[in-house]
Design a binder for these strands. Structure first.
Lengths: 187, 187
DNA sequence: CTAATCTTTTATCATAAGATAAAAAATCAA
DNA sequence: TTGATTTTTTATCTTATGATAAAAGATTAG
């Protein structure tokens, strides 16, 4: 659980009791490549932390598999549009590389908010930060050509291109796989 | 201040003292159309609530004015990528229709979080909800043609098209004004 | 190791949207 | 009200990306 506690420290300090309380509602799981960690249609009641491996959130639009986001080591995954609304998610979480993850029970976590304001504060900050990333991503999408978006990804997150099938990168960038291949071909 | 308190109630209950504490750090302002409420380059230290009027967040990309989002009555505006990071914002808030707004001092608000966990919880929920909207918007952008995005806007927020210059709608949709005009022409 | 499957590239053609220019319409200021 | 400015539309030409098909390459299971 150490990497998780280290991750938390970057956002907000926690007392030993608060750390213990979170650990008590968390489980380490090992998941094989290509497995769905959470399927489409289920309400998100778990917040995951990736210790090792790669994952993505994806969904289907008109029958086409679209990747919403990739996740690597030391990051939190949650389908927030379900977690924060209680509605079933149209999205799934899939493991792309054999992974070791920590699963935090969200309902129990939210209960901890009442007794540990420091935990509520920690997760407030974690999700504020995720919100900022998402806002910045919109800026990256609005008004950039596919080629510009590809080059930006190449600069900012080359690990995505090293560790993830290009077909997923294509849908993440909002283009077809064929277009991505063509763009890459322009050297 | 009543509409603000009503707005809060939709997210989380507040004690009378907490309400009072927020009201003490808030001011009502009247702003004329076309004024910048907050200019580019300033660090966001205010959270606004629109009582009446329309506003947008915009920025310049390669010299071109791009609208990130529109805001109408009974909503909260903040440039979160500055508010939550303390960095200066590359974005501005502009008033598009004569407006009456409530300005909440963010630094003072964040101090209130320590004495009023209920206020921290309220704003946690407000921004969680804004985060969800932003995630959903990415889904709307990824993999839709300009025409589909226009029609979606027409359905989901016709008020945008009634109250806002089309040139701003175009950049919001990620297309040129000329393209938007062409799409509208295809009736 | 081999066959089957999945992923990526290459090629061709069609189309949506960009760039530019200019006209028309609407808004604003004196 | 009138002229000036801003906004929106229309037109032409160009280009990036989609759709489809097929080949090449990589991965996986037996």
């Amino acid at each position: 659980m150490t990497p998780l506690l280290q991750y938390f420290k970057k956002f907000s300090p926690l007392s030993k009791e608060a750390e213990k309380a979170i650990i008590e509602i968390s489980n380490i799981e090992t998941i094989k490549k290509n497995k769905d960690l959470q399927p489409i249609g289920h309400t998100c009641k778990t917040i995951y932390f990736i210790k090792q491996g790669v994952a993505r959130i994806y969904y289907f639009k008109d029958g086409i598999d679209i990747t919403e986001r990739f996740f690597f080591e030391n990051s939190i995954i949650a389908r927030v549009e379900s977690l924060f609304t209680g509605k079933p998610s149209r999205k799934a979480i899939q493991i792309l590389e054999d992974a070791e993850i920590i699963a935090i029970n969200a309902n129990q976590l939210f209960k901890l908010y009442d007794s540990y304001p420091e935990i509520e504060r920690l997760f407030r900050k974690i999700f504020e930060s995720a919100y900022v990333e998402t806002v910045n991503r919109i800026e990256g999408i609005q008004f950039h050509s596919a080629e510009e978006r590809y080059n930006a990804l190449l600069n900012e997150a080359p690990n995505v291109l090293m560790r993830v099938p290009l077909k997923h990168v294509a849908s993440y960038l909002g283009i077809t796989q064929v277009s991505l291949s063509r763009i890459r071909g322009h050297h």
